[in-house]
């Protein structure tokens, strides 16, 4: 980490970042006494055979309950199969072709992408702004109270939140429509969950309300970990509060931002409960997301091979996005 004359932080170059990434591993090996140069390359990062023994139970559980189902699911996506026809019939890529020709699949994919974009704006972008403002301008007990207020929605179960927002969106007596009418915007009032064009957006906004406080809290924790002397140095250089947020806080919470972006995007592609509770994918399949369409295809329509193909698509998208994001972050890593 380098502090410039104006107190702002300079990002490391790729080569510096690479060195910074290697160093912790070296230190860890030396402390274990095994000497990292003699350790097989595969084990170098995790500290030798003894570490493998310690992580073996967790690894075994992961293999059985995560990776094995994953591989099985990919295998199943090339078969036509239902619970009443226990012999899967190999159909090649037919399930993927079916998905490509299925308008509801594309609608669901669009809804997931919309979910991800809006979630990044609110649960990463706006959450950072809010956390930075709280940490920068609010002091003492008020700060703790604000954190708690923002966090409360995250502690509410999705079923309760769904019910709560149903009453907000209800077209006849819902708070939202009533408020719009009182504000002279009665023409904007509508059946938020009952229109093809608004249902998914209404669900997405409920999800933001629920997830926003949690990510704000995570950002607050990340901001508190930033050494105060960096802010002091910035103060000495006469940097204003908003510049401090931009040039000190923002770069130093980049790892948290990366984590939140990955979690938010993968969460947006795995969304299920919110939609099932609010609309079950309706009206007219307009609020289907990949998760609910997968469920409906498998458990309702009995097309388990097709459901597996949708699951495979979700997996590929989320893994690709996670790898891309991690790659970008490693190239622009900041340490102190």
């Amino acid at each position: 980490m380098t502090v410039s004359a104006r107190g702002a932080l300079r990002e490391k170059t790729p080569s510096e970042s690479t060195r910074a990434l290697v160093l912790p591993g070296r230190r860890q090996s030396r402390h274990s006494g095994s000497g990292w140069r003699r350790t097989p390359s595969v084990l170098r990062g995790i500290g030798g055979w003894r570490s493998v023994v310690w992580v073996a139970p967790a690894l075994a559980l992961l293999i059985v309950f995560v990776y094995f189902p994953l591989v099985q699911n990919i295998w199943l996506s090339f078969f036509s199969w239902s619970v009443f026809n226990p012999t899967p019939e190999f159909v090649g890529t037919a399930n993927f072709v079916h998905a490509a020709q299925d308008p509801i699949f594309w609608r669901a994919l669009f809804n997931n992408v919309a979910y991800a974009v809006v979630s990044i704006i609110f649960q990463v972008g706006a959450a950072f702004v809010l956390a930075a403002l709280i940490e920068e301008f609010v002091r003492g007990r008020a700060r703790a109270v604000l954190r708690a207020i923002y966090f409360i929605p995250s502690a509410i179960s999705i079923t309760v939140a769904g019910l709560l927002f149903y009453f907000i969106y209800q077209p006849q007596s819902g708070i939202l429509d009533v408020a719009l009418q009182h504000l002279g915007l009665g023409s904007w009032a509508q059946s938020w969950l009952g229109q093809d064009s608004t249902a998914i957006w209404a669900i997405i906004m409920m999800s933001q309300w629920q997830g926003f406080g949690y990510t704000t809290l995570l950002y607050s924790v990340a901001i508190q970990r930033i050494p105060r002397d960096l802010y002091d140095a910035a103060d000495l250089d006469g940097v204003g509060p908003f510049s401090r947020i931009r040039h000190v806080t923002l770069p130093l919470v980049r790892e948290m931002s990366t984590l939140l972006i990955i979690v938010t995007i993968s969460g947006a592609f795995q969304v299920f409960n919110e939609v099932m509770v609010m609309t079950a994918g309706g009206p007219n399949n307009s609020s289907q997301v990949l998760g609910t369409w997968l469920y409906r295809s498998g458990f309702i329509n009995n097309q388990f091979g097709y459901a597996a193909a949708i699951a495979t698509v979700i997996f590929v998208i989320t893994v690709a996005l996670a790898i891309l994001q991690m790659w970008i972050n490693q190239r622009r890593r900041v340490e102190w």
Partner: peptide, 29 residues
């Protein structure tokens, strides 16, 4: 987010049960 992860893992486990059972099942006809 934890709930979403739990849902995913639950779903994966469910699919596993289905897949495994599909492999060993002999019912039908």
């Amino acid at each position: 987010m934890r709930r979403k992860a739990t849902t995913l893992l639950g779903g994966a486990a469910l699919v596993t049960v289905l897949v495994l059972s599909g492999c060993v099942s002999s019912s039908g006809g």
